[in-house]
């Protein structure tokens, strides 16, 4: 009996499965990235592309050469951007779903996207340069979540999680209204299209210089989440049980919210509002490796990276103009989500 239980436990714990999945996903992401590097409207054969890339790495950079520019300054940053944004959104989604004990939660739950949207729209409204618009988006995202935190802290009774979510809904609605107001006030010929495109999300203009400031912030948010992964599991049992098990639930939750918000806000700032990734991808990850956060987080991040890379590659190749990312992720994500719902309860696992 003891022996049998032991082997069952090993299988049931899905540790081996988790590791294998992660290995496979890393390989898939690497392959997809290479593939994505080779497709695009600019005609570039695979061998030529690899040659150019090697030249660029070796420093034999033919300045101003279009093919090299396409590879090094456009496709590489864009692929890196898709990987970063996808991984960050899916990881933040996994975090929030675990934290709020609810599989229907997306990284926007505390208003980070609405806040980032308002910040960036304000930047566009004030005709600021791109870097400043991105910074305003980042600051807006953090600001909205901070406001949610303060509002929730000011309400002293009731279920903490529920109050946090409700405060998020309220702040999200208010910032959304402010964004709409700016849209009405904005110059219809100049700023309104820019605002609309920004709110639909896109990686079209992503450059290396956008990624470099965002990546360390994403990393700084992800590292504590990885380190705290066991405790985040326990938090998903609810505050009281987590505290009975020895966890300072309020402090841990604050840490998780701060980290996940940093991660989300920094990528929303560069890519605009890209929906669905943070909602759907953690589901798939949970179906693959179970809810244990230690495995869920890396698998969700890798899946998110792969998913957004594929979607963004579609966005830049299927039409002669860019298809906004938010539209594609919704077109792919919404039917999938319905399918999950139709599959019934097991899908929440």
């Amino acid at each position: 009996m003891g022996e049998r239980a032991r082997t069952l436990t090993r299988d049931g714990f899905r540790r081996g499965a988790g590791r294998g999945t992660i290995g496979l996903l890393v390989a898939a992401v690497a392959l997809l990235s290479m593939g994505a590097l080779l497709v695009g409207p600019f005609p570039l054969g695979p061998f030529e592309a690899i040659g150019r890339l090697l030249d660029a790495i070796a420093g034999r950079d033919a300045a101003g050469d279009a093919a090299t520019t396409v590879l090094v300054s456009i496709r590489l940053p864009r692929i890196a951007g898709a990987l970063l944004v996808g991984a960050a959104l899916a990881a933040a989604g996994a975090c929030y779903q675990t934290l709020f004990r609810n599989p229907l939660v997306s990284p926007d739950i505390l208003g980070v996207s609405a806040g980032a949207g308002l910040g960036a729209v304000l930047g566009i409204f004030l005709s600021l340069p791109v870097a400043a618009i991105q910074f305003m988006g980042f600051a807006g995202g953090l600001g909205a979540v901070a406001l949610v935190g303060f509002v929730a802290a000011a309400i002293r009774h009731g279920d903490r999680t529920l109050i946090l979510v409700l405060a998020g809904v309220v702040v999200g609605a208010l910032t959304g209204a402010a964004t709409s107001l700016l849209k009405v006030l904005a110059d219809p010929y100049d700023q309104l299209p820019a605002i609309t495109f920004w709110l639909l999300g896109s990686l079209a203009g992503v450059k290396g210089e956008d990624i470099w400031p965002a990546a360390p912030v994403v990393l700084a948010g992800l590292v504590p989440l990885v380190l705290l992964r066991w405790r985040i599991n326990v938090l998903s049992l609810g505050d009281e049980e987590a505290r009975a098990l020895g966890i300072e639930a309020a402090r841990l939750r604050l840490a998780v919210v701060v980290c996940a918000t940093l991660v989300t806000a920094s990528v929303v700032a560069i890519a605009g509002v890209v929906g669905w990734v943070g909602l759907v991808i953690p589901h798939i990850a949970r179906m693959l490796v179970g809810p244990g956060f230690g495995r869920l987080l890396p698998v969700a991040a890798l899946l998110g990276a792969a998913y957004l890379l594929v979607v963004d590659t579609l966005a830049r190749t299927i039409s002669s103009v860019e298809v906004p990312l938010g539209i594609l992720t919704a077109v792919v994500g919404a039917p999938f989500f319905l399918w999950l719902l139709a599959r019934g309860r097991r899908a929440w696992a």
């Binding site: 695009g40 409207p41 203009g205 830049r316 002669s320």
Partner: peptide, 20 residues
């Protein structure tokens, strides 16, 4: 240079398309 049959209005282009 932004020309495609059946497509009108304001759109977003990718830098690659502009280079092309």
């Amino acid at each position: 240079v932004a020309e495609a049959p059946g497509q009108y209005g304001l759109v977003r282009a990718s830098p690659e398309q502009v280079i092309l």
